[in-house]
Amino acid sequence: MQNLTALSLKTELGKLYVLDQTLLPQQQKWLLCQTVAQMIGMIKALQLRGAPAIGIGACLLLAYRASVGESREQLLQDAEVLRAARPTAVNLMNNLDSMVIALQQADFKGAAIACAEHLFAEDVALCQRMAEFGAGLVQDGEQLLTHCNTGGLATAGVGTALGVINLAHQQGKNIRLWVDETRPLLQGGRLTAWECQQLGIPYQLICDNMAAMLMARGQVDRIFVGSDRIAANGDFANKVGTYSLAVLAQYHQVPFYVVAPHTTVDLACTDGSAIPIEQRHADEVRGVSGGFGSAIWAPEDAPVFNPAFDVTPAALVTGWVLDSGVYSPADIAAGVLQQFNN
């Protein structure tokens, strides 16, 4: 297998390494990943996160397992086990579908490695195209807002929504970015803020509940978010809190865009009600933990509702920025997403 390098994934001498995102920004620690159990553990613990990165990471692991002699039958079983690791992120299922096809080939070992390398390179290209389409929407001097983390940590390439924002910055558009901290796991505060510092993007970190005030003051010109799954009608699932932003954006007449590769489209979901929403552990809401330490502020047995994602209706979206272009509500209503038969 080739040596591949992304912000959160890399292969060296045929072995797969994952950057532990739970330790950022305080520590940058690469973890060797050699087994399916390790990969699933990393995904569930959010050491590896971001819909595209999860799918590619799972396929790179299968390619590694093929390279060290695992049987076709076991690899196919492994693919099914990995498929259930993160129920909302459909990129994982789509990428594994490609890997299963590769595993049917006579030279399944070579085909698996080639498939994983292709998916990695494809995501790099998809991210670049999304960035170019999305950056074309940004005007000079605009104040942008984003939620969760959608940069290179979440993909093999430059990212989805943050990739758009970074390219607009590189184009000299004099942008300013508001970064939602993103409760309860602070992916904005820990990860997006860290990426912005690495990229030199001017940003300010805010609590999630401050976005409405900024919009009311006219300090948000445009919002870009990512997605883990887009239904056939344009409804989409993203990190919990995205729906609230979309409602606020409509009230304040702020353009609201979702940025995602075509691998995020799931035509089997006719609308957002069919998207499975992952429920996570109650401790994530009762307190907080990470490379910075841990703290609990709620009663230890406090009942908790902790969905990892919410669904934003298509009616609240200004445009869908995909790797093939920017689509309007009229495009979506006309069935443009039907072309993406993953």
Rank of each mutant, 00 (worst) to 15 (best):
V138M: 05
V220H: 10
R217K: 14
A314M: 06
G69S: 12
P52A: 15
E12G: 04
L13P: 00
A274C: 06
G134T: 03
S67I: 11
R72C: 14
A135M: 07
T264Q: 08
C127F: 03
V254R: 13
V259E: 02
Q171K: 13
S289D: 03
V254H: 09
T150W: 07
L31G: 02
I332N: 05
Q38Y: 04
L32A: 15
W194Y: 15
Q139T: 02
C115P: 02
A249K: 08
A85S: 15
E117A: 15
Q253S: 14
V100E: 12
G291S: 06
A125H: 08
L126S: 14
R229V: 07
E122P: 06
I201D: 01
Q21S: 10
S67V: 01
A333H: 07
A314S: 15
V225N: 04
L16F: 08
L177T: 01
I332F: 00
G293Q: 05
N342E: 07
A85M: 06
A112L: 05
I332T: 06
R183V: 12
S324V: 07
G159W: 11
L186W: 08
A85K: 07
L248A: 12
L46G: 04
A249T: 10
L75K: 03
G241T: 01
R49C: 12
E70D: 09
W320E: 01
P52L: 15
L9M: 08
C207L: 00
G290E: 10
D140E: 09
L316V: 02
D221R: 12
A135T: 04
F224I: 02
A330K: 07
A37G: 07
L13T: 07
P25Y: 11
G157I: 13
V285I: 15
Q26V: 10
Q34G: 02
